[in-house]
């Protein structure tokens, strides 16, 4: 893709060119307001580029058929709090085109993955922040998407469970799923296949965590980021 995104006169994303492969976890790193979320929205087809285009599987986004193959988890939990977790999952399953016969099994699978299976029949209002985050993640995984776009998926999730979720990402990656995560957490950045550093709408560096560290002669991603931004 190569894109520029403007809202009125404000340029949010400025000439970003990036190509992502299946079977990689791409981490998008950058301070808040740098354009991470806008980039994710462009990829999942809600927003459209002012200049340039986003292409997924050789098709130009937005495209409803392609959107079926994308799992999206927004930065804010988009859940119906007055419904139970199960009702939320059932709703999003039918919206994303999960077959009725598979629905029950998929719900069990994804809830096990995020460690919520015993809270399936609880109303979402009674969930904690971290639990809501995990339910959102479960919804994104529900229809076995080929591409996962996760906007800060692990905010408010405790370290042990975060490890477990990243193990899941790794498994999915091996199956050929492309995962894009935005994050603030630097130790998560180390687990990505490749990283993109974004600042004020510009992609300032792309490469594997080790490459970035070597290029800047630093030992941590944090230092590398500061060196690039500096």
């Amino acid at each position: 893709m190569s894109i520029t995104k403007r809202y009125g006169k404000a340029t949010i994303l400025d000439g970003i060119e990036l190509s992502l492969q299946r079977g990689e976890i791409f981490g998008l790193l950058g301070p808040s307001g740098s354009g991470k979320t806008t980039l994710v929205k462009l990829l999942c087809g809600i927003e459209e580029a002012t200049e340039g285009s986003v292409q997924v599987f050789e098709e130009r986004m937005p495209d409803l058929k392609l959107m079926k193959r994308i799992g999206y988890m927004a930065q804010s939990d988009a859940l119906y709090v007055e419904l139970t977790a199960k009702e939320n999952l059932e709703f999003f399953a039918s919206i994303s085109g999960v077959k009725r016969a598979e629905c029950k099994e998929r719900i069990q699978d994804v809830m096990k993955l995020v460690d919520l299976e015993q809270h399936l029949n609880k109303k979402v209002e009674a969930y904690s922040g971290g639990m809501k985050r995990r339910l959102s993640l479960a919804i994104a995984l529900l229809h076995n998407p080929d591409i996962l776009l996760l906007d800060e998926p692990t905010v408010g999730i405790d370290p042990a469970l975060r490890q477990k979720i990243w193990d899941t990402f790794e498994e999915l990656r091996k199956k050929g799923v492309l995962i894009l995560v935005t994050t603030h957490v630097m130790d998560e950045a180390d687990r990505c296949t490749r990283l993109g550093l974004i600042r004020e709408g510009k992609l300032i560096a792309v490469g594997s965590p080790d490459q970035l560290k070597t290029n800047t002669q630093t030992t941590t991603i944090e230092q590398a980021f500061l060196t690039y931004g500096g």
């Binding site: 999942c44 087809g45 809600i46 409803l64 058929k65 959107m67 079926k68 994308i70 999206y72 927004a74 804010s76 939990d77 988009a78 859940l79 119906y80 709090v81 999003f92 919206i95 994303s96 085109g97």
Partner: peptide, 14 residues
């Protein structure tokens, strides 16, 4: 306001 509309529009719903 709760973001579910955006989430729905990220799905293939017409």
């Amino acid at each position: 306001t709760q973001g579910t509309l955006l989430r729905l529009l990220a799905s293939p719903i017409k």
